[in-house]
Nucleic acid binder design. Structure first.
Lengths: 250, 250
DNA sequence: CGTAGGTTTGATTCAAATCAATGTGGGTGG
DNA sequence: CCACCCACATTGATTTGAATCAAACCTACG
C-alpha cells in the first residue's frame, strides 16, 4: 500500500459550536457539556480534493466522519472489480458508520468535489457513547436511520426506471431542504454514470430520463443544474405504478 | 388499533445461559456478570404461530427481539399496499434494530412457521449499553453488520437472476452453518413468492431457477427441501458475470 | 486547438415480466 | 375416509423495459 498522502492542512479548526451544521449533525440535541466533550475528541477540517479518497475498503476502521462541506460518494467494489455506488453524502451527514462492525471498512468513500470533513476517532467516541445517554441516542438513531434509508433504496429497486429517478431527485431535494437550501434548485455533484450506478441503471438510461422529464415539463435541466418545476406531478408520478404512470405520461 | 392478542404463554423461561444459541446471539462475548444483567431485562419465550405478526409497521418501538426458534420474514409495505420482503430471520439473530431510530417500526415482521422469540425492552437495553462496553460493542457490531448485509443485498440487485438466486442459497447455507446445521441441506421456510419478493424477481422466475439448477445437477430440490450438490460450481457461477455464466451453462 | 471525459441520441437485443394454463399436495368438511 | 379446495408451484408463449451496441456531440481544460 502506498504511503497515504494527507492533503489535510488541519488549519485552526472551526468547532462544532460555531458550525452552521450543528443542528443537523451529531451535535444535535446534545447539552453544552456533552458538546464540549464531543468537540474534544473530534479533529476538524480535514480537506479533500476532488476525487480524493476519504477511506478505502479494507482500510482499518479507526474513525468515522462527518461531512462539513462538499459531497462524497460511498462505493462497494464488486467481485469483477467494478464500482457500485451505494450512497451519496452531503454536509451534516455521517459516513463510515459500518466501521463499528469489523476491523476493516467494507466500502470506500471518495470526494465528488473539494470537501471538508470532521474526523471522529472510534475509541473515544465509543467511550463517550457510554457516558452520554443523549449521544448514545443520537448515534443509534443515526445508524438505524441509515438502516432505514438503505431499505428505502432497496425497495426502489423494484420500481421502474422513472420512479427510481424521481425518488432520487426527491431525496436530494429533501436533503437540500434540511440544510436550509432550496428544495427545487439542485446542483448535482455526481455524474450520470454515478447516478446510474446508484440506481441500478445505465448512464444512457439516466440521460434519457433527464430528457424525458424535461420534455414533459416537470424539470428544467442543464448539465448538472436541475430545477424541479412541477413537484406535485413528480410526487404523483413517483407513487403511481408503472402502468398508471404510462397512461398519464402518454 | 385492535387490542393485541398475546399468544405468549410465558412459560418458565429458558435463560440465555442455557440457550443453545448463546454463542451466536447477543450474549456472545459477554462476561458472566453482564450476561446476568442482560438476562434480567429479557423476557424469554414469546410464542408465535405461523403467520402471526411479531410487530407491525407503525407500532410503537419499545423493544427489539432475538429469534430463538422458527423463522421470520421482515417486510416493508409499498405505497400501493403490496408487501416487499426485506429479509429473513433465523434463530440467534436480532430483529427490529431499526427501532432505535424513531417512534415507530418502519417495517413489520411475521412468523413463517411456529416460532419463539426473546423480547428485549429498549429502555433498559439502552441503559445497559451505557454501562457495559462489551454489550455496546456487540450491539453496534450487530447494527453495522446489518447495514453491511443490506448493502450486500443491494449490490446483488445489479446481478442476473441466476446470480441473485445462488447468492441467496449461499447466504442460507452460511447461516445454517453458523447455527451448527448442515450447510448443504436446506429446508426453506418461505414460499417462492417470498423469495421472489426478497430478490426482486417474480414467482415464475424463481420457479424456473429451481428447475434450471436442478437440471444442471447443481442442486436437488423437492418443494421446500433443497440440497446443494456441487457447491464449487455454484460459487463459481455466482462470481461469474452473466455473459461468462451463459457460456458455461450453455 | 485538440483531446478526454462526460453526455446525448438512435437502433437493436435480451432477460425477465407478464399473461395464461395446468399441475399438485396438504388440509378441511362432508 | 375420501373428495374437494385452495394456496402454492410449474411450465409455456408473448411482451417489454432497460441494456447493449454504436455514433456523434459537447465543453472544460491543458
Amino acid at each position: 500500500m502506498p504511503a497515504r498522502r494527507k492533503s489535510c492542512s488541519c488549519s485552526a479548526s472551526l468547532k462544532c459550536r460555531e458550525c452552521a451544521l450543528k443542528r443537523v449533525c451529531l451535535p444535535a440535541s446534545l447539552s453544552d457539556v456533552e458538546l464540549e466533550q464531543l468537540e474534544g475528541i473530534i479533529r476538524h477540517n480535514r480537506r479533500l480534493r476532488k476525487q480524493e479518497y476519504l477511506f478505502r475498503a479494507n482500510e482499518a476502521t479507526r474513525q468515522v466522519y462527518a461531512l462539513r462541506s462538499g459531497a462524497l460518494k460511498t462505493c462497494l467494489t464488486r467481485r469483477d472489480g467494478s464500482e457500485l455506488v451505494t450512497g451519496f453524502v452531503f454536509p451534516g451527514e455521517l459516513v463510515g458508520l459500518d466501521a463499528f462492525g469489523g476491523e476493516q471498512f467494507p466500502s470506500h468513500a471518495m470526494a465528488l468535489e473539494a470537501s471538508v470533513v470532521c474526523v471522529i476517532p472510534l475509541a473515544p467516541l465509543e467511550e463517550l457513547v457510554g457516558t452520554s445517554a443523549r449521544l448514545r441516542r443520537t448515534l443509534l438513531k443515526s445508524m438505524s436511520h441509515e438502516l432505514h434509508s438503505e431499505q428505502q433504496h432497496l425497495s426502489h429497486n423494484r420500481e421502474s426506471a422513472g420512479q427510481r429517478f424521481i425518488a432520487f431527485l426527491r431525496d436530494l431535494s429533501v436533503r437540500n431542504g434540511r440544510r436550509g437550501l432550496s428544495p427545487t434548485q439542485l446542483i448535482l455533484p455526481m455524474t450520470r454514470a454515478e447516478i446510474g450506478s446508484y440506481l441500478g441503471l445505465t448512464t444512457e438510461t439516466i440521460s434519457r430520463l433527464f430528457t424525458r422529464y424535461r420534455q414533459l415539463g416537470l424539470i428544467e435541466s442543464n448539465g448538472r443544474e436541475v430545477r424541479l418545476l412541477d413537484v406535485a406531478s413528480l410526487l404523483q408520478l413517483e407513487r403511481l405504478d408503472s402502468h398508471e404512470a404510462a397512461c398519464l405520461v402518454g
